[in-house]
Structure formats: C-alpha cells, structure tokens
Design a protein around this nucleic acid. Structure first.
Lengths: 219, 219
DNA sequence: GTCTATAATAGGATAGAC
DNA sequence: GTCTATCCTATTATAGAC
C-alpha cells in the first residue's frame, strides 16, 4: 500500500492540518478521532500509527497551525512594509472568524486549553509568547507591556467576536479592536510622545528573529 | 420528603450555583450531570425534575452567575465611589483566575460558547452586553467603543491568564491589562484630552441603570 | 421531588489481518 | 501503514418505585 518513502509523513501532515482546522472550529471534545481520520482520507485504526493519543494530536495540531501562520507571514510576496499593521488587520478580520482558512488556536481555543494536560498547555503558552514577539515594537519593558496588551486585544477580540450571537455586534467589535491597536502602533511609529530609546536602527532583522520564536517546536 | 413549600426552588438554586462553578472551571463537556447533582447533594435522577436538558442547565447557570455578580456589585456595603475602578481591578485579579469564588462565564467560557446552541449563545451575548454597559462611562458612540475595548481586554486578559501555563507570566499579563484600563478610565475621569460632550451631570443614576442590564433574564 | 435501575449511544484505545 | 472488528468506559436521558 505504501509506495512512496515519505508516504507516512504526508499522511501525518494531512492528519495534522485536518485536526488543526477541526479542533479550532469545534474544540477538543466535539472532535472525534474518527472525524479527523475520515476527513484526512483514512480510518480510525490508522491513527495510532502516527500519534499515541488524542491529546498528543491536539498539541501537534496547535503547533502545525502556528507554523502555518508563520509561513504565511514570511511568504516571499509579503513586503516587510507595514508588516505589523497587516498582521493585526488580518487577525481581527471577519474572515478570520467565519472563513474556512486556518483559525488561530490561541483565540479559538483560549478557554478550551485550560482543561488540558501540561504538554498541550506548554505548547499553547509557547505559541502565545511567539505572537507577543511578533507584535512587539520596542525591546524594552514598556514595549513588552504594550505587546501583551495588543495580543490580549487580538485574542480577546477574535474569541469574543466568535462567541457573540450577533454578527453586527461582532463586526463592530472587531473594528473597534482593530483601530485601538492600529492607533497604538501608529503612535509608536511616528512621533513618540513618551520618553524612550532604542527604537530606530532596527529595520527588518528583528522581524525574522521574532517570527522564529513563533511555533518553534522544541525549546 | 419535601416538607417545605419552596423546597424545589432551593434545590434548583443549589443545582444552579454548583453548575455555574463547575461549568466555568471545566467547560461544558467535562462536567457531567452526575457530577453537578452529586455536589448539589442529590442523585442524577432528580435532575430532570428541574431542567429538560444539560444545555438548558448550561444557559441557566450562566445567567445565575451573572446575577450573582450583579448582586455583589450592588451590595449595600459597596460605595459608588471609584466603583468602576474596583470592578475592573477585581475582574483582572489573580483571585478571579485561581480562586474558589464564582468565575465570570464570559471569560471562562468564551471559546466554549461558540459550540453551543442558539439559546445558550443568546444568553451569553445578553450578559456580554450587560458588562459593556457596566464599564461604559459616556453615552455617546465613542464611549461605547471604549467600553467594548475595555470589556475585550477584561475578558481576553482573564481568559489568556487562565490558559497560560506560567503563573508569573499570567500575573504580569493581568497587571498589564489592569493598568491599561485604569489609565483609560482615569484619563476620562479627570482632564479630557479629546473633544467631547455630555459627560458631567450624570452621577450614579446610570450606574444602577447599567447594572440592571446585566443578567436580565428575559428581554 | 427524589431515588434506583436501565436503556441507548458515542468515542478512545487495542488486536490482528493484509 | 492502513484496514476491520472489538473492548471498555463514560454519559445523557428515561422508567418506575416510594
């Protein structure tokens, strides 16, 4: 049955992408292994040749989604100009909530993750730190605090917009979160009204360094 | 067995408070009816004399938690002075994350709720609108937008702090969200640096009107 | 109104053929 | 490596005694 040498690896990737999509859309408990394997084009029995448990799949799927997001950000077509603005705008968009593309596990699973085992929570926490670095502008303490606030508003905005049973309110909320963050970024990019330093001579080098942090598999 | 006339009502309230606590801590799927009833001092069979399904219990439990929070805010001991600051500080506190008191279903169930039926999502959305009015300072459009941003940061901050597998980071994050909102409130209470109107002659009257909105059972 | 007992189902995990 | 078949447990919901 297995003609290609990397047949297993490709099966694994199919499982991971399918799982990442299903878990984000429906949470850990509502997704069955049967469902994942069916949509990946296999049956339940084949699952345990790839993962030892559903929980292990969960963690790996979160990592796969994060790597996928990083690859999208670093794609050749993306010019580094206004990179941060575009990341925030795409994140807090209606398509991120209702579209069919991969959803961010940070926002879509934020209150699901607290119930899971240490391994899964460690992975989620690692991906979270990665996103903080992505939206961080200054290397100092204040820059870190501002990055935390931005990420909370991104994750919170998407999570709440998805929970609300009123599309109009969801759209208003997303737009409000978007402008809050974009105003904050703009305020840092142009005239700084606060006193701080070390903010000029870094072009796009840290951009890459930051992105590396996101979804780096093993410490 | 039932000596008191309101025996059933007291049983119902015990079930609701127990369910509100368990659901917030563990989510919908991980909590069984058996577990709720045991901790409420009854057995599984008695459940269906009070609720027609687990999902109905879920919605009613969310409402019960919201009413409980409203009652705490409106308790006689609470002076209206710095009311808003105290609400925000208590919400974004370490005790709210790890304590044994009732957790806010908005934050603790934010990504759980998207999977549930319309009735439950409607209730969650109603409670959300209530909290927006609680943290709103001005009746105009901008006041609404700022209230949305605050609520997103409150819900997002608590949800993320709970998800993170690093207590130190959680505490830092909570503190950062707290100061962001408190700075914003202070900026509105004292000198307004933005041009707006209609902000002076309302003392505590709207405070009550706002609180009424939270957890009002039926439209 | 609460109890015990019992469907009926779903889903995680394993065994063994190919 | 993937399949089919099976075990085992957990849980919702109902039936009927008291």
């Amino acid at each position: 049955m297995s003609w290609s040498p990397d047949h297993k690896e490709r099966s694994r990737q199919r499982i991971l992408i399918t799982a990442a999509r299903l878990f984000a859309q429906q949470g850990f408990d509502k997704v069955s292994i049967d469902q994942v394997m069916s949509e990946a084009g296999m049956t339940r029995g084949a699952f345990y040749a790839h993962f030892s448990s559903k929980s292990e799949l969960y963690g790996e799927a979160i990592l796969a989604a994060a790597r996928n997001a990083r690859d999208s950000r670093l794609r050749p077509g993306a010019e580094p100009d206004k990179h941060l603005e575009r990341v925030v705008t795409a994140y807090l968009s209606g398509e991120h909530i209702s579209g069919d593309s991969l959803h961010c596990p940070l926002a879509f699973l934020v209150s699901d993750i607290a119930q899971r085992d240490e391994q899964v929570r460690d992975i989620w926490t690692r991906v979270f730190r990665g996103l903080v670095e992505v939206v961080r502008q200054e290397p100092d303490e204040q820059g870190y605090a501002r990055a935390l606030q931005r990420v909370v508003m991104m994750i919170g905005g998407v999570a709440v917009a998805r929970a609300l049973n009123d599309d109009s309110l969801s759209q208003t909320l997303l737009e409000t979160c978007r402008s809050a963050i974009l105003d904050d970024i703009l305020c840092r990019e142009s005239g700084d009204d606060h006193a701080d330093r070390a903010h000029n001579d870094e072009g796009k080098a840290p951009q890459v360094a930051r992105a590396e942090l996101l979804a780096e598999p093993a410490g």
